[in-house]
């Protein structure tokens, strides 16, 4: 699905990503793990085409055989609308504080897909119910909901959109243990039911181990190791991976 070759991102002389080459296979869950500042989130930004204006991007990003590097701003937007959905780390700040959730969920789902309001309400209510969220959420403002509820709202958007690729940037790091497990369960369900390709960014090895098919280990903007979950956790080769695994278990 994604074929990335020699991806380099720098701001002035500072390299955020150095010559990354990897693939995100269709219908699989790929996790990128590493410590803070290793370049995981920059990778997602590069794939989405939302890097800051001062960043320089080199290499190739092929999505379904099409190179995304030279796409115009509008073409990028169209691509994001049609194929991707991204869940970010900080659910509490992922929504505008002065708009009701109904309006915001509409913008993140039905507006992208061109659905009418009635169709949106009918579908989103079913999804919210499935995620153990009451319909009252729609009439609430973000500050009236907990972080866990807001992250489930983002997941509801992902379920509504049924994207080809779901990118999740540390989606569980702001959640407590109970909500983390619940979120992982829902993510797995989305992946199984719809066959969605998932690119998961996490520093939590437990999360990666519980859900991913394939793992990329990043350090200082480079991939230092890659492999199936079992390989990474049972026979890590790189010193950094060994340290990460040892620290986790």
């Amino acid at each position: 699905m994604f074929n990335i070759e020699n991806l380099t991102v720098r701001i002035n002389d500072k390299y955020l990503i150095k010559g990354m080459t990897f693939t995100v296979p269709k219908g699989q869950i790929t996790a990128i793990i590493g410590e803070s500042g290793s370049g995981k989130s920059t990778t997602i930004s590069a794939l989405l085409g939302i890097l800051p204006a001062q960043a320089t991007l080199e290499g190739t990003i092929f999505f379904n055989g099409r190179d995304l590097i030279d796409l115009s701003r509008d073409e990028r937007l169209a691509l994001r609308k049609k194929h991707f959905f991204t869940i970010f780390q900080d659910a509490t700040n992922s929504f505008s504080p002065t708009l009701k959730m109904k309006q915001q969920l509409y913008s993140l789902t039905a507006l992208r897909l061109g659905h009418k309001n009635e169709a949106f309400l009918a579908k989103i209510k079913v999804i919210l119910k499935d995620l153990n969220l009451s319909e009252d959420v729609l009439e609430s403002y973000p500050f009236e909901l907990s972080g866990g509820m807001l992250q489930r709202c983002m997941l509801a958007c992902a379920l509504y959109n049924e994207p080809d690729v779901l990118m999740a940037d540390e989606p569980t790091s702001a959640l407590d243990m109970l909500h983390q497990q619940e979120f992982i369960k829902r993510l797995k369900k989305l992946h199984t039911q719809l066959g969605t390709t998932v690119l998961l960014i996490t520093h939590d090895l437990g999360v990666a181990a519980s859900i991913a098919d394939f793992i990329l280990v990043m350090k200082n903007g480079e991939i230092v190791e890659r492999g199936q979950v079992a390989e990474i956790f049972e026979q890590p080769k790189h010193l950094y991976t060994k340290r990460l695994v040892a620290n986790h278990f």
């Binding site: 939302i50 991204t86 929504f95």
Partner: peptide
């Protein structure tokens, strides 16, 4: 943050501008 989230998820720019102005 919410602007980045909306932008990354393909919310039309006009809609984002309205949100920004309102806040």
């Amino acid at each position: 943050y919410y602007v980045q989230v909306a932008f990354a998820n393909g919310v039309p720019e006009r809609e984002i501008r309205t949100m920004v102005f309102r806040n």
